[in-house]
Design a protein around this nucleic acid. Sequence first.
DNA 1: ACCAATCTGTTGCAAATGCAACAGAAAAAA
DNA 2: TTTTTTCTGTTGCATTTGCAACAGATTGGT
Lengths: 209, 209
Amino acid sequence: MITNFNKSEFIQKIQANCDRINIKKFSKGENVTTYIENRNQLCIVLKGEVDLIRYDFNGNKTIIGHFTENDIFGEVFYPANTNNELFVEAKKNSEILFILYENVLNRCKKTCPFHDELYSGMADMVLQKVIELNTRIELLTKRNTRDKLLSYFDILSSNRLNKTITIPFSYTDLADYLSVDRSAMTRELGHLKEEGFIRKVGNTITLLY
Amino acid sequence: MITNFNKSEFIQKIQANCDRINIKKFSKGENVTTYIENRNQLCIVLKGEVDLIRYDFNGNKTIIGHFTENDIFGEVFYPANTNNELFVEAKKNSEILFILYENVLNRCKKTCPFHDELYSGMADMVLQKVIELNTRIELLTKRNTRDKLLSYFDILSSNRLNKTITIPFSYTDLADYLSVDRSAMTRELGHLKEEGFIRKVGNTITLLY
DNA sequence: ACCAATCTGTTGCAAATGCAACAGAAAAAA
DNA sequence: TTTTTTCTGTTGCATTTGCAACAGATTGGT
């Protein structure tokens, strides 16, 4: 990040200082989308995990985004005219903070002392989101399943500063996230193992290179 | 967009009101990257077209982004640790505006009357960038070449409100943009033509559905 | 503890894609 | 204008991927 912005600290401050927010709880498997009244809402995951999902006309599922604690998402980030319906599904029991984008743009009370901080913190979060999205684009532009897997492992590994990583998905979902066929992906994981690139135990992968 | 934000108007205002900006001209084919002194710079295309390009270790080229008039780009938007080198190349004679992200965050003079507008305009531009990136992600998550082409055409078509579109790329570059093999893409374009989905004359495509 | 649902690994086969190579068209440079 | 370079369309072939189906493992619910 550009600034030494502390996301989780900022999110706590919002909860303490802003009275325009709304917090809702969702059970595992619940569809979050139906509770989003307004496109112009920013949503922040306080606890749990949610996936942003698209089903195309063939019934293919794609995990457009996977959000965990302190991640931000929302329809604000998507073109209004999209012909695909997007769903947000809680993968675990989750707690989501909602705030209208208008409330970030416009000061609620003339005197609200927190507003400047809210505004610039949100700007930082959106910039961080841009970086995430570009990372995802780098992943998706990889030409084949092998390169997607290796890039994905690299990203996780460099985030956690560890050659051994735990995949935060089921393999079924990982395939949907990388936008490849699950069986083909399993096959490719097998090849990577045989060729000595990785060690694989359950959903724990160790990079051997 | 959320607000009725006018991007080109805003960009003109920056040029008229902010003295912290820097404008440079680039000739077709020139590498813009080498002129970017600072990662923390926002770059806006005033005139012309530039591509953001990655070459992987196999020499495969990917067009990560294609930017035209009023588009914003910059290394600020990319993770600092990326092991791929990114290049920005002018595809036409171009004019680029540079502004340090610090100058957006921090008021230059205590009294600068333009600063609030600069800040909120930039926030709008970054939000718009998020939408663009999500659109691109939707494209890249399509499972096969046909769906990528059709989605790409759809996006162009709905942007221009016209069933007939002109591709702003050479076909070679379009393949790099969609992250597919060029010859396979040409083949697929042929099928789409045969099957009556599109009409194709040069780089003009008409959607027939 | 049981049953149901989901996930995982696997395989054969069909289809799609990538790769390499080439010739003519088009565009850029000289 | 001529020459050189890049772009486009095409094809054969090897490889990768997707699809369908299945059995065993794992997980979740009751």
